[in-house]
């Protein structure tokens, strides 16, 4: 394998349905429904997806949702802010665990 991540794999995503078609169909139907406009607009959902893509550090999702955000009319200011939201939550999540560290340190210290 030349690389773990290959952008040519993204259009092949549907191959995941090859040996589990019923599950793939369920996933597809649910995925499609999730991204339809509801209480949130399609554009807002796409920005959330972009932020999550950064948080889970999925290059396929970042590629797909960068395109999708632009195609939903978002701009780079909004998309960069979305990446910052992801980073802030990731950073905050790391930092808030510091309380565990502090509690444990306190417990085992004199």
């Amino acid at each position: 394998m030349a690389a773990y991540y290959d952008d040519g794999d993204l259009p092949r995503f549907a191959e995941m349905g090859a040996d589990a078609p019923a599950l793939w169909e369920k996933f597809n139907a649910w995925y499609g429904a999730v991204f339809q406009a509801g209480a949130l607009s399609e554009r807002e959902k796409s920005l959330i997806a972009l932020a999550v893509a950064h948080a889970v550090q999925c290059p396929y999702c970042i590629d797909a949702y960068t395109q999708d955000c632009l195609e939903k009319g978002s701009n780079l200011e909004q998309m960069t802010e979305a990446a910052h939201v992801a980073a802030a939550i990731k950073g905050g999540a790391a930092l808030v665990h510091g309380l565990q560290m502090r509690k444990i340190a306190a417990k085992i210290s004199m």
């Binding site: 607009s41 399609e42 395109q67």
Partner: peptide
């Protein structure tokens, strides 16, 4: 017109923006 290699957004949604 999209300012790159991507498709345009939904017309009604973008008009509102």
């Amino acid at each position: 017109n999209p300012t790159g290699a991507f498709l345009p957004p939904d017309q009604a949604a973008l008009e509102a923006d």
